[in-house]
């Protein structure tokens, strides 16, 4: 069945009444989208745990969704809060140690990917919300630029410009954090 806002609204209403099949359908629709967002923001080893916490929260609080915003906006607010909780729980130093532990010298090194991944995540998290969001919409959710523009309520040209500025800023952050790690190791 094609996923339409009307279909989604019916599923949400049924889920709010405790209909497990309806909630299962919502879960199936959003799992990969949420999982990819989490992949972009937390270390690989923690992706499943954080994804689990997000969906448990969604299940427990779906009754409080009143439709003031779109369901996806509401859901991604929960993603944002759970990712923030994850980093609050982790000690800052642990993250620094993780990056430093991953050998950062160029060349054939299996740990290089892990270090790159952490740098990307750190850079993404350091961006302003609007820049991080447009990167996640296009690259993690895979929405075409026109859909990204519609979702953000801006024109196509503005969406492309914001994406360009976001990638430019992200590249700058990656270089900045990379230099810090190289300097400190």
């Amino acid at each position: 069945m094609t996923w339409t806002p009307e279909h989604e609204a019916k599923l949400i209403e049924a889920a709010q009444q405790g209909n497990q099949a309806a909630f299962g359908e919502i879960y199936d629709h959003y799992l990969t989208k949420v999982y990819r967002r989490v992949c972009a923001l937390v270390p690989e080893s923690d992706v499943e745990d954080v994804t689990q916490e997000i969906f448990i929260s969604v299940a427990r609080s779906i009754g409080s969704f009143r439709g003031g915003s779109s369901f996806s906006t509401w859901l991604y607010r929960i993603v944002k809060r759970r990712v923030a909780d994850f980093y609050r729980k982790r000690e800052r130093q642990v993250e620094q140690v993780d990056i430093e532990k991953a050998d950062h010298t160029p060349g054939e090194n299996p740990l290089r990917d892990a270090a790159d991944q952490l740098l990307l995540q750190q850079a993404l998290r350091a961006l302003p919300e609007s820049q991080r969001e447009i990167i996640l919409l296009r690259l993690a959710e895979g929405l075409p630029f026109q859909d990204v523009a519609d979702r953000l309520g801006i024109k196509l040209g503005a969406a492309k410009l914001r994406f360009y500025r976001a990638i430019e800023a992200c590249k700058g952050k990656i270089a900045e954090f990379d230099a810090e790690v190289t300097f400190s190791s």
Binding site: T32, Y35, Q52, I56, V58, A59, D116, L124, L139, I174
Partner: peptide, 30 residues
Amino acid sequence: TVQKLQAASQATPDPNFAIRLRNLVVAALP
């Protein structure tokens, strides 16, 4: 940079994890 970010965010959940989590969250629905 786009390629790296895209590659880092294109993972697909493990099917076993997806099923296990589905059962868990559906049961958590009040």
